[in-house]
């Protein structure tokens, strides 16, 4: 069974099409990474999954339910814009958030004790939120989203603004939850974290789905068009070859993006110069992300120039 099954949802704000015909299927028990540049529709999609926003069209089913009231208590949600009541104590905030998920106080207290200890916050349970450092507050926010022991956990940018130590602690916590059987969906800009943690990656860009699959599938799809070469004569030898789309010159070697078959390109290259190294490159998620999202910057620049 799927934890999330979204079919062709769209959302428009005035003139702006924020999400356009997006479909996502998140299998139960998986860690699903949600990537995309700022303003691409990630948060809007997550809000529609959480029924905070209602889609203009399409259907959302979470944990087998289409009505939010049927699944809301079993879903933990850490929004990108998150906060805590400054004047409340850590314990009271966590109890309040837990109670809103319908959990009895005894269970909340047990869970709270465990999580506070795990994230080294045990001494802070009776302190007011305003006394916490930013990193501590973020950890408390994370605990607030998992205190109800949800079946599905949706984390919007959980690692942003955390120092490496705290980010690591949170990543471990996510893996621990995964081992307990919790399905986890998180959106992130941190491609390393996504690559390391996620079994499946979903990328949304300009409101549309551009990537959806396992990391292997995605890398295979994008692998064939980039090669790393080291040739006598360097970068100038690569220009003018028919299938070269762009060259990223690193000095001693060059990354070449191709429009055609790498084997044909190798034959052309051998005829032109001596080839010391030829490697079909497995692109990192970061490379793929940048490759998909970069035209947006070009569009923006063009728009800015047009406006001027």
């Amino acid at each position: 069974m799927n934890a999330i099954a979204v079919q062709g949802i769209s959302k428009r704000f005035g003139e702006h099409q924020a999400v356009d015909e997006v479909s996502i299927t998140v299998p139960k028990g998986s860690i699903y990474g949600f990537i995309g540049p700022n303003g691409s529709g990630k948060t809007t999609t997550i809000r529609m999954i959480m029924n905070i926003l209602v889609p203009d069209s399409g259907t959302v089913s979470v944990l087998g339910h289409t009505r939010a009231s049927d699944f809301r208590d079993d879903v933990g949600y850490l929004p990108e814009e998150r906060g805590l009541y400054k004047k409340m104590t850590v314990g009271r905030v966590l109890r309040y958030y837990g109670q809103l998920k319908g959990k009895p106080i005894t269970e909340i207290d047990k869970e709270m004790k465990e999580w506070l200890a795990r994230l080294q916050l045990s001494d802070w349970a009776d302190k007011k939120v305003e006394q916490l450092s930013k990193g501590m507050a973020q950890k408390v926010q994370f605990i607030a989203s998992v205190i109800s022991q949800p079946e599905l956990l949706i984390l919007d940018e959980p690692f942003s603004g955390l120092d490496p130590v705290n980010a690591e602690a949170l990543k471990d916590a996510v893996l621990e939850l995964r081992s307990r059987g919790t399905t986890i969906v998180f959106s992130t800009h941190d491609m390393n974290a996504a690559e390391r943690l996620c079994e499946r990656i979903f990328m949304i860009f300009k409101g549309r789905t551009v990537l959806d699959g396992t990391l292997d599938e995605i890398q295979k799809e994008y692998a064939l068009d980039t090669v790393r070469v080291r040739v006598t004569g360097g970068a100038p030898m690569l220009t003018g070859l028919p299938s070269v789309e762009s060259v990223n010159d690193h000095g001693n070697y060059q990354d070449v993006r191709l429009t055609g078959d790498p084997q044909a390109f190798l034959q052309q290259l051998v005829q032109k110069t001596a080839v010391q190294q030829f490697e079909i490159k497995k692109p990192s998620l970061h490379d793929i992300f940048v490759r998909i999202a970069r035209p947006a910057e070009a569009d923006l620049t063009a728009a800015a120039l047009g406006a001027n």
Partner: peptide, 15 residues
């Protein structure tokens, strides 16, 4: 306060 401290959306995930 809830809006400025960005608490609203956390609450809307539950109610």
């Amino acid at each position: 306060e809830e809006k400025m401290s960005k608490i609203s959306e956390v609450l809307l995930g539950s109610v």
